[in-house]
Design a binder for these strands. Structure first.
Length: 400
DNA sequence: AACGATGTGGGACTATCGCT
DNA sequence: AGCGATAGTCCCACATCGTT
């Protein structure tokens, strides 16, 4: 598309921005445990692969190494990235740490463990045993060279692609600027995954079709509020929330964080309990529901506007536009996702296109839903177009 | 021809509100 | 106060359009 070419330099500038964020241990622990609650064998006998910045700094590696036996892993593979500012800071292996050892550019390495036992004889198996094991077994770690296109440890490098292909489940926090590419690679290789991303990924034109096709969904935990991530020392602290701990380590609080996965979990089998339109209008906890064009038909989509996820009516048989955060509560047995009204993702059934003569910003209005109030066009923020499953069963005749 | 105004895409964005 | 949920805003740098 010409517009994309036009904005190429703009996108390059975007892509160059910082995105090195290190996930907190508790966030990983809570999420993984939610899968175990649904199916204790989710990870049993599996090869788990974590692309990291440094296995010994990464809480992904720490969590899976420390819980290797509890989860029943077959193998844990972790790679570090040649170019990460934190890689090498805590490494055990001087040979992977060039120069005087003080934050020189480290070489990337792959670490592979296939068992965890009490190496130090202290009666427990923990991360220290893993470190000891790796020190004693050089074969468990290999340097990653990368190629002339990608640095060692880059998920796009041939070595990492090979490791990914051997893995059953990929668990990591990829750079958000490369989220589309990362997901595309996972889908291409048919991998199971559990990765961190942003809510707005729903609206990405590459991601939404996967959501619609039930090939990716939201994880079990983290559905609102901020999450805290460690960032490199050089990171500019101009985000809304940040702190520096007593050791001078920087953290940033990020809004809109979500887990993205194709592993099944309990939350997506919980049904939303719903009321009729009339009851919603009367009893909604949202006092302003009446002023929100609730259940009005869009002027440009064949669907009704539902301003809050918990105001979805149980007595509407057609298409409904709901906030994108509906996905936090999406149960695929209860609802079917038909489309989205946002930017270039206007895959809902259009009933009308706007022209410049109609309204200013007609481009946006053509993508987003519009409700007409008197002579005013009221543009509505991005909406998922959904309908009750019971409707599609009737419409399509058969359904699994 | 020169110059200013406008459109463009999408985001590790950000603000705000209500509830517990 | 903290959490959960909804609904936005604004900015990047360049191409192109419109006006002088």
């Amino acid at each position: 598309m010409a517009a994309q070419v036009k904005n190429r330099s703009l996108h390059k500038a975007k892509a160059a921005k910082q995105d090195e964020f290190y996930t907190q241990y508790v966030d990983i622990q809570k999420e993984v445990e939610a899968y175990l609650e649904f199916d204790p064998d989710t990870f049993r006998g599996k090869v788990v692969y974590c692309n990291c910045d440094d296995p010994f700094e990464s809480n992904f590696f720490k969590y899976f190494a420390a819980n290797f036996n509890k989860l029943g892993l077959k193998k844990l593979v972790s790679t570090s990235y040649d170019g990460s500012p934190i890689a090498g800071q805590g490494t055990l292996f001087p040979e992977y740490n060039e120069g005087n050892g003080k934050r020189q550019k480290p070489k990337a390495l792959a670490v592979i463990i296939d068992h965890v036992k009490d190496e130090d004889g202290d009666g427990a198996t923990d991360i220290n045993d893993v470190k000891l094991f790796l020190k004693r077994n050089k074969a468990a770690r290999t340097a990653l060279k990368g190629n002339n296109k990608y640095a060692g440890g880059d998920f796009r490098s041939p070595e990492c692609i090979a490791l990914q292909k051997e893995a059953d489940i990929v668990v990591t926090n990829p750079p958000f600027s490369l989220f589309r590419e990362y997901v595309a690679q996972l889908v291409e290789h048919g991998k199971k995954f559990l990765i961190i991303g942003n809510v707005q990924a729903i609206t990405y034109k590459e991601i939404f079709p996967l959501i619609k096709a039930d090939k990716i969904w939201m994880g079990a935990t983290i559905h609102s509020g901020d999450r805290e991530f460690r960032v490199p020392d050089h990171y500019p602290l101009n985000a809304a929330g940040w702190r520096v701990d007593e050791n001078g380590v920087k953290y940033i609080r990020v809004k809109g964080v979500r887990w993205w996965t194709n592993l099944d979990h309990g939350r997506r089998h919980e049904k939303l309990s719903l009321m009729t339109k009339e009851d919603n209008m009367r009893f909604s906890k949202h006092k302003e529901i009446k002023g929100k064009a609730a259940y009005d038909r869009y002027d440009n989509y064949d669907a009704i506007e539902v301003p809050f996820t918990d105001a979805i009516p149980n007595d509407h048989e057609g298409a409904m536009g709901v906030p994108i955060t509906f996905l936090d509560r999406y149960n695929p047995d209860q609802f079917e996702i038909l489309g989205i009204t946002d930017r270039d993702n206007n895959s809902g059934v259009k009933t009308k296109e706007y022209t410049e003569a109609d309204v200013p910003n007609f481009g946006d209005l053509n993508r987003r839903g519009v409700v007409r109030v008197g002579n005013e066009y009221k543009p509505i923020y991005a909406r998922l177009i959904i309908r009750h499953r019971r409707c599609s069963r009737h419409a399509k005749g058969t359904k699994k």
